[in-house]
Amino acid sequence: MSESRHDYTADTAAKDSPRAASTLSSDVVDLLAAIRDALDVPLPGVEDRDERRFCRLMDDRRSAVYATLKALLDERDPRIIARDAEYIRRRTADTPITYTVWQPAGGEQV
């Protein structure tokens, strides 16, 4: 199962904007997509173990996003945007989902 419910590239994300045109650079769109993908994870199952793993995963991914945004705001150098998007993607890949995903009573995944 894929972690993310979305599979957008920078171009696809720009095309899906309400006006079908983006005023954001492709690097910014890619960074925003990396942030979305890092934080868009399924809910954990009801076991305490699953909730603890979910919390650790989200703490790690949030810290990667926070560090990236802090660096961007502190340095204000647009040349690092692509590097930071890759950093978030690498951290996301390094922290896969290891918990049981919550399933509704009927077994259909949300």
Rank of each mutant, 00 (worst) to 15 (best):
D11C: 04
T12L: 13
A13Q: 07
A14Y: 06
K15W: 08
P18D: 08
R19V: 11
A20L: 04
A21V: 09
A21H: 08
A21G: 03
S22A: 12
S26I: 12
S26C: 08
S26G: 12
S26E: 13
D27S: 13
D27K: 11
V28E: 07
V28Y: 08
V29F: 05
A33C: 10
A34G: 06
I35S: 04
I35D: 01
R36H: 13
D37Y: 01
D40N: 11
V41H: 01
P42T: 11
P42S: 14
L43T: 14
P44G: 06
P44M: 11
P44E: 02
G45L: 03
G45T: 04
V46M: 10
R49Q: 14
R49N: 13
D50S: 15
C55H: 15
D60T: 11
R61N: 00
A64I: 00
V65L: 01
A67M: 09
A67C: 09
T68L: 04
A71K: 05
L72H: 03
D74C: 11
D74L: 14
E75Q: 10
R76V: 08
D77H: 06
D77E: 08
R79N: 06
R79T: 07
R79M: 04
R79H: 08
I80T: 00
I80K: 00
I81Y: 03
I81A: 02
A82T: 07
E86R: 10
R90E: 02
R91N: 03
R91V: 06
T92P: 01
